[in-house]
Write a protein that binds this DNA or RNA. Structure first.
Lengths: 244, 244
DNA sequence: GTCGCCCTTTTGTCAGATGATTGCGCTGCG
DNA sequence: CGCAGCGCAATCATCTGACAAAAGGGCGAC
């Protein structure tokens, strides 16, 4: 048994950092599923095979598989094994699944889907926020907006931008909108590469953000909705013209 | 040790059916978290305590906890234990979390949030479906609509109704909309109790559904959007007047 | 009083054994 | 020759027990 040697594959994988074994396994297996290595309906290798592949114990494999089961990526039954669930059962709005999904096919198509999704929810979220926000929530929004303007590095700016949009979702007063924040985070982390091209784009975007902030502050739902639409149209142009 | 006795608590819990131990544990612990027994930031009992509480092995407890970690309900670290994550990290759009959430506080508020959410996404989904649907997807929509009309029991009708709305989401051509189907399913399964009051309500609702079907079939996105809005307004009235 | 070390607690990981479930092939009968 | 029933075996499900690693808290030295 090669079990006694200092584990090859995991040592290689551990470039990811210090995450635990079951997390690494879940990540690796989940990625392979979403990537399409095992199409929906097919049977995965059994637990023993996985544990041999990764030089991990069967317990660790099982815990990883349970995590994927919790995300509805697969279901397992005795004697059968683990079967990949049909795609429409996958919880694509889960942070991890989204990350796997984003990294597998072409970024472009993924970004377009996310962007379209933002068009659906963000204008309404802003309109709701305009009428339902608390003062604390307004503070959060305003602060993020200010920090966006004051940011010097692109990273700082993107961070503040993300916080701005998440704060609006939270202020919408609908708990179900909050989890959609992962989409926005994902969008921004991928959009990151697109907007290096500085210039008046940034100024224009900042003005648009300030307009949203103002309309939410002054309780003007309709105007807030329109302002968000305008901002998204602006972002659309960035997505369309492609990465740097 | 009472470990040798024929397990009391799990035997009682097993009225749920034949689900596996880890699933039962995840369900029970998840419910308690969402219900608020352990507020965000607090530390859960350790694995040994859980395993004693439920007369299950630590492995089973760990697998259950891994499932809850996958849903971002908690995070665990050595020596600390398992800490409940802040609510905004919870994946409320997960099927299980949604079910726990729906059963904990008052149904009413939950239903309102879901209904509001439907107002945001379903009109747009229908509009997208009108322009992007494939013929097969259109068949699915039409069939569900027909089956709704032909249904005799309330259960059949609700089932067809659900399929109708899910089919529209699928036909929207945006993968990210599909997972939101769990919201609709949840809404219908809870709305179930509200609409026993039969009458012309059903006829009116059926006509509204047929109108949506027609507008999607004839590629009229604007009209489809309006039709869905009308149907949702109708459902709103049902929700407002409360359960039977 | 403060800094740093040790120690205990809790999760993380592993190995091995047994039980439960069920698809599949085999065998025997019609 | 076909079919039905049965047993086998593969696979997950569960349990047990042990050790490693991390990290907060307490204790001692200075």
């Amino acid at each position: 048994m090669a079990r006694k040697q200092p584990v090859v594959s995991r040592t290689r994988d551990s470039r990811a950092g210090k995450s635990s074994v079951h997390a690494q396994l879940a990540n690796e297996i989940g990625l392979r599923i979403v990537r399409g290595d095992y199409p929906p309906g097919s049977i995965l290798p059994n637990e023993a095979q996985w544990s041999e592949t990764f030089n991990a114990s069967r317990s660790a494999v099982r815990e990883a598989i349970k995590m994927l089961m919790a995300k509805s990526l697969l279901a397992s039954r005795p004697k059968i094994g683990s079967r990949v669930e049909p795609r429409e059962r996958w919880n694509l709005l889960d942070r991890d699944v989204l990350a796997w999904y984003a990294s597998s096919p072409d970024r472009e198509a993924f970004l377009k889907a996310v962007q379209e999704f933002r068009h659906i929810i963000e204008p309404e979220a802003a309109a709701l926020a305009a009428t339902r926000r608390t003062d604390e929530q307004m503070d959060e929004i305003s602060r993020a907006c200010r920090e966006m303007g004051a940011a010097v590095t692109l990273e700082e700016r993107t961070g503040a931008d993300t916080r701005f949009h998440l704060a609006i979702l939270r202020a919408s007063g609908n708990d179900l909108l909050v989890p959609l924040g992962v989409l926005i985070e994902s969008a921004f982390s991928h959009l990151f590469l697109y907007v290096t091209r500085e210039g008046d784009d940034l100024d224009a975007a900042q003005k648009l953000h300030e307009s949203i902030e103002r309309n939410i502050r002054l309780v003007r739902p309709e105007a807030a909705r329109r302002a968000v639409r305008k901002l998204l149209a602006n972002t659309d142009k960035v997505v369309e013209r492609g990465p740097e």
